[in-house]
Design a protein around this nucleic acid. Structure first.
Lengths: 165, 165
DNA sequence: CCCAAATATTTTATGCTTGAAATAAATGTC
DNA sequence: GACATTTATTTCAAGCATAAAATATTTGGG
C-alpha cells in the first residue's frame, strides 16, 4: 500500500496535480505576497523620506560597493535587469547629481558610471535608514528563521540560475 | 552577563547596526532575488506560451475564484494593487474577449467584472500549465521546506498587515 | 586594408504601476 | 429637497521594466 502522498496513481488524469506541486505553488504565492507587501512599504518610505525610489537605491547600492564605478552592462547584469532599463535610471540619477558617466579609455562605445561625492554621502546615510526600515518590517523574524529562510531560498535560486534548457 | 546577541551596548555608535538587523536585511535581499528571478521566468513563459502576462493571469485567477464576478474595487484590494492599475489590465482583457463588464443594479457608479466563457476555458487550461511551471521552478523545494517557508513568511506578512502607525 | 561579426549602449514601443486629480453617482444631513 | 461628503471608478503624468531594433564602435578574418 502506497503511503507516500507525493507519489500518485499513474492513471491520475493529467488535469489533476500532485500535493507537492500544490505546496510549491502555495509557497510561491506566499513569497510573492510578502515581497510585494514589503516592496510597497519600502517604496512609500523611500518616496516620503528620500523623495526617491527603490530602483535608484539599488543602482546606487551596486555602485557604492564598486567605488571605481561600473559599466552599464555590469550594472544591468548585477541588478538582473535589462540594459535599456538601467539607461533610464542612470539618466535620472545623473540629472539629480548622484552619478557621473566617465568615458572609458580605448573603448568609445562604453562608459563607466560612478557615484559623485554627493551620491556617496547621500547613499551612506540612506543605507543606514533603509536597513532600519527592513529590520523593523522583519522584526518578527528571529535570527534562526532568517537563516532558515536564506538557506531554503538559496537552494531555490541556485536551481534556477542560468540553466535554461 | 548578557548572552543575547540582539541586545547591544547602548554606547554603540548609531552608524553601526546589529547582527540581527543585518541578518534580516540579508533575508529580505534573498526574498527579493528569488521573487524577481521566478517572476522573470514565469513572465517569459507566459509571453511565449500564452502571449499574455502575469498581471492578466492574476486578474483572471481572482475572477476564476469568484464566478459571480467582482467589482473593480474588490479586484484591486484582492490583488493589493491600485484602482487605476486594475482599470488598464481589465480594459486589455475585455479587448481580448476574456472579461466582460456588467452594470450593477441600483448603483450606476460601479460595475462588475467577470470572465467570459472563453476566459473561463482559457484560464482553466493556463492555470494547470502555470502550476506545472511553478512546480518545476521549485522542484528543489521539499514538502517540508515549503511548509517551513510558508510558516516563516506568514509571520512576516501578518506583522505588516494593515497596522500603519 | 576591408568588412563581417561581435560588443556596448541607447532608443523605441508597449505594458505595468503608482499617486493624485478628475468625474460621476449615491448618501446623509440640515 | 438642496448640498456637502463619501464612494466607485477612470484619467493622467511619471517612472519602471521588457524585448526588439537601431547606433556606434571594436575586433577578427581574408
Amino acid at each position: 500500500m502506497n503511503m507516500d502522498k507525493t507519489v500518485r496513481d499513474p492513471d491520475m488524469p493529467h488535469n489533476e496535480t500532485s500535493d507537492i506541486s500544490k505546496a510549491r505553488l502555495r509557497a510561491w504565492l506566499q513569497i510573492l505576497k510578502v515581497s510585494r507587501k514589503i516592496e510597497g512599504e519600502l517604496r512609500e518610505k523611500m518616496r516620503l523620506e528620500f523623495g526617491s525610489t527603490l530602483p535608484r537605491f539599488d543602482v546606487m547600492a551596486a555602485l557604492y560597493r564598486s567605488r571605481d564605478g561600473m559599466r552599464m552592462s555590469e550594472l544591468s547584469s548585477a541588478l538582473m535587469v535589462s540594459n535599456g532599463n538601467v539607461t533610464g535610471i542612470v539618466d535620472r540619477l545623473v540629472t539629480e547629481g548622484m552619478l557621473v558617466r566617465v568615458p572609458v579609455e580605448n573603448d568609445r562605445r562604453a562608459s563607466i558610471v560612478r557615484l559623485t561625492e554627493a551620491g556617496e554621502k547621500d547613499f551612506a546615510e540612506r543605507a543606514l535608514v533603509h536597513e532600519g526600515w527592513v529590520s523593523e518590517l522583519f522584526s518578527d523574524l528571529s535570527a534562526h528563521d532568517a537563516d532558515a529562510l536564506i538557506r531554503i531560498l538559496r537552494t531555490v535560486y541556485h536551481h534556477n540560475e542560468a540553466h535554461h534548457d
